[in-house]
Design a protein around this nucleic acid. Sequence first.
DNA 1: GCTAATTATTGACATAAATCAATACCGCAG
DNA 2: CTGCGGTATTGATTTATGTCAATAATTAGC
Lengths: 244, 244
Amino acid sequence: MENRTTDKACEDCTKTKNCCVKTCFIEGEANIFQELESKELEFLINGKQQICYKAGETIIKQNTTSTFVVCMKSGFAKVYVEGEKNKNLVVKIAGNGDFISGGGLFDGNVQHFTISALTDVNCCLIDASTLTKLFAENNRFAIDLLRNHAKQNNYLLTKMVNLTQKYMPGRVADTLLYLRKEIYKQNPFTTTLTRQDLSEMSNMTKESLVRILHQFKNSKLIKTQQNTIEILDEDSLLSISKNG
Amino acid sequence: MENRTTDKACEDCTKTKNCCVKTCFIEGEANIFQELESKELEFLINGKQQICYKAGETIIKQNTTSTFVVCMKSGFAKVYVEGEKNKNLVVKIAGNGDFISGGGLFDGNVQHFTISALTDVNCCLIDASTLTKLFAENNRFAIDLLRNHAKQNNYLLTKMVNLTQKYMPGRVADTLLYLRKEIYKQNPFTTTLTRQDLSEMSNMTKESLVRILHQFKNSKLIKTQQNTIEILDEDSLLSISKNG
DNA sequence: GCTAATTATTGACATAAATCAATACCGCAG
DNA sequence: CTGCGGTATTGATTTATGTCAATAATTAGC
């Protein structure tokens, strides 16, 4: 838990205690706090730590023990598993409002993935014990947490099938569509992900990824300029994703 | 939910209402009911259906809508995702006491995998609404369910990395060790899984699986006789699993 | 108990994708 | 502006694994 920095936004948040949980997680993927009453939120807020990370910093390190759950306030982070032989598998990109549980929570407290900041990241660390204490008062909150876990489960299942049963072009198409639709939500999107990162999302070498991007470019499916990618023919990418 | 049969065990259970949840899930993987009080168990038992399936029958079909959670009482079932092009991926084998949630529970009620009986199976179907009603009375139960989901999550994460980052021998070694340690829990074990099933657990073609088994046999790592497999050199298999 | 139908095994070949290697490009420190 | 470290791109080659095809071995039906 080294590498902490405190910027202006964090100071503001500490002062008002009104920023992170209460205000910032309304729109997120999980929207996990919607069921909480004010006093319950207050309880959470008192227990949390709001931390800022610089791009490149490690937020959670795989195989370390911790009981924190990460709530993203701003910025993007990559969630990945470090395999043997220096091979990583990027599981997902976490963005605004995402609630990254799983890991060791409720299961031994050992983190099963590393989370690393792609941009400057402002996030909260909430201790698991704070969460579980709330269950007694508000069981709908437990259901929300379960829903978050179930979604994650189904996401992993789908990803596993995609990675094992599709050829490279299909996997790259998946990665591009995921970034466009789920993460950046705009069409020419600019990313801080390197080709290496993209290849680790798509389960292939960086050389293979580059070649596929080149093919897509030649076929007028996408346009690329350094780290800016524009999807020109979404329908074709979708059909490639469905394995053509 | 067709193909229901009722055998003696089920009749007994219906009479006594003391069999499935209360008695049979003490030793299971999840042991999800340990936190429940008697009257809460009674509530569950009243809402459940105890069903017997014959080997080969489908218990849950992917992409159908249902709100059931499956609790295995006896027998084995395979849990698999049906991908495109008739390619399946066997995610896990469910055995005695296993609690198979995930699927659509808390997330749209659409099943994300198929469960099919490998042997005759005796199991309970419990409606999700029955479970969630219990949360209000007993929040530790929610935590147990969360733990079950978290374990499943971490299992999927590990499996995903294994399937994508290991060569075939490593994947087959994983499959054999999994069956021996987690499922059958004895050394010469006899399985009803076909080579096709084994290959779908290991993400390869049946031909490749057969070849690897043959290699293992030649190297004196295992002994096979039809559907009975004996692991002779567990240490070597473990080292192959760690990628050699 | 015998034929039909699955399932398992083995071999020859094709190919998707990794590896190795070389060069080109870019951002940054001086 | 200039050289340096990392990132990106492209090509040549190797290799792991799938596909196709033929045969053997089991299991199931009559």
